[in-house]
């Protein structure tokens, strides 16, 4: 990794993995929105995407690598950046416009680590958990989702985590493009605005799913 260790390579890699992860989230939310159409549609979608998809293992491994790279690079950079200012200011203020600093941008490492924790819990719950058969083929992911989110603590944790996702993207989306050197007087303002819209849409979308599932899960689990 030494060749990629310069401060600019670091940015480029975080930016690239960030965009990739963002793309994954868009696909992921699209899939998850199927849950509103009931178990048939949702499970069928999962079946097509997972069982019938020969590329899945590759995608999964790739995704894992991207996550690992993103996490490694961001944590490593965070540590180095902390070291770059060994003595902190007694008093420090936000410098005002045109600064892009926000609570979201200042807490990227916190939101990121939270997401890491969320991911471990989340992937364990969905990917590495006992599976229910779905008669038409594949897993009954619908049921699994209902069960996972029927617990109010779990649902609450999901909702909170979605706020964190939103926060991470609030700064992360436009930041990733700036990291990749994408900048133009006409484009940058659009990217800045888009980042905020996406952050709210994705966080909000997942949140609605989580809340909706929580309230629906009551009936389902008992059957």
């Amino acid at each position: 990794m030494r060749v990629f260790s310069s401060s600019v390579w670091t940015k480029i890699l975080i930016g690239l993995t960030g965009v990739a992860l963002f793309t994954y989230l868009v696909i992921h939310i699209a899939g998850n929105l199927m849950v509103f159409f009931g178990p048939d549609v949702f499970n069928n979608y999962a079946y097509v995407m997972e069982v019938r998809n020969p590329l899945l293992p590759i995608i999964e491994i790739l995704l894992l690598l991207i996550f690992l790279l993103h996490i490694y690079k961001t944590i490593r950079m965070y540590i180095d950046n902390q070291a770059a200012r060994p003595v902190k200011y007694v008093k420090k203020k936000w410098a005002g416009t045109p600064s892009r600093k926000s609570i979201a941008s200042s807490t990227m490492i916190v939101s990121g680590l939270w997401l890491l924790a969320f991911l471990i819990i989340h992937v364990k719950a969905f990917r590495f958990s006992p599976e229910y058969e779905w008669p038409a083929g594949g897993r009954d992911l619908y049921r699994q989702e209902m069960e996972n989110l029927s617990n109010p603590f779990m649902a609450g944790f999901y909702v909170l985590s979605m706020v964190v996702v939103g926060s991470h993207l609030w700064h992360g989306f436009s930041s990733a493009f700036q990291s990749l050197g994408v900048d133009h007087p006409n484009v940058t303002p659009v990217l800045m605005a888009a980042g905020k819209v996406f952050a709210v849409a994705i966080a909000g979308g997942f949140m609605i799913i989580a809340v909706w599932v929580y309230f629906h899960s009551g009936g389902r689990v008992r059957v």
Binding site: S7, V8, T10, K11, M77, D80, N81, A83, A84, R85, W94, A95, P98, S99, R100, K101, S105, S106, M108, H171, S174, S175, Q178, S179
Partner: peptide, 8 residues
């Protein structure tokens, strides 16, 4: 340090 695009 590196840059996190904060623009301060």
């Amino acid at each position: 340090g590196s840059c996190s695009n904060e623009g301060e």
